[in-house]
Amino acid sequence: MATSLYGASEAQDVICVFLEREGDTLQRVSLELLSKGRELADEVGWKLAGLLLGYYRMLPLMGQAFEVGADEIWVAEHPLLKTFTVEAYTSAAFQVIMNRKPSIFLCGATPNGRDLAGRLAVKLRTGLTADCTDLRMREGGILVGEVTGFGGGVLALIKTPQHRPQMATVRPGVFPLKPPRTERVSRAVEIISVTLDEAQVRTRVVEQVVGRGADITQSPVVVVGGRGIQGRFDLLRQLAELLGGEVGATRPPVDSGQIERERQVGQTGVVCRPKVAIVCGASGAFQFTVGIQHADTVIAINTDPEAPIFETADYGVVGDALQIVPALIEALRNSRVAVTSG
């Protein structure tokens, strides 16, 4: 069997979490992984390290990472790491990992995180358990990742017994963010120098556009309005915005010109595959439900308790969407205030 670049005997008792930044803060998924990593490290008495790549204004990011439980931060600074490119980041992460030899390397399953982890695993010749829904630590520091396959129908437990680092990616939101642990004293920042060559970086960002190009087939949340919302798509838009999603519609509101035809969901419209579809005031005609059958979770709100939409929903509410949606917006807004002030 082919071996990884370093084996279990050389690996250090450290769990390393890749810290992905978003402007001046760390991505939430990185903090979630630090929280989980702390828990796993404590089980076996290991250290928890964060890997931070970048060029400037790294200090506030380190503070965040320490707060959620990192013992040390490995920092590599280089002008080519200012923004993410898969070439520079893979190369830098590889150099740091080869320098520190962690036993475990965790990464958020974001688009960039997946790009990085996929390349890194090959570079290191090690195993990668992608999109874990849970992580457990077994005796001897063996990481077991739980993954789902076959459209979520099968759960598999996967480990990498001999190769190091044991790599795993985890989707955002899988692990809760635990409150900061203040009693930790060890807070070490280690700067690791990396060599990067401009010629390596061959990806060119041609254009980056924010706030446009909304594509309801790709949206993680779709709030769908039917006849029952009486054209109040403004309300649905507020809810969708709050959830980072898009607004869709059944046929009748499209017919009456309340919303563009491009947003019609169903057999003769678009088929979407969001994490959540919130269906408001739609009875649930078959031709429509075909358009939301791939949604992970369906929430339905309708005044008619007999409406067939409830048969294809995970959570149903009998009531007027025009009352429930504003209340939901309120509930979500209030909890946001609670989080930031607390």
Partner: peptide, 18 residues
């Protein structure tokens, strides 16, 4: 509506990380 909204918000938090 307020009670239902609280329940829905809780469900949404379960399935949506953001």
């Amino acid at each position: 509506p307020q009670e239902v909204a609280q329940q829905l918000a809780a469900r949404l938090r379960e399935v949506l990380p953001l």
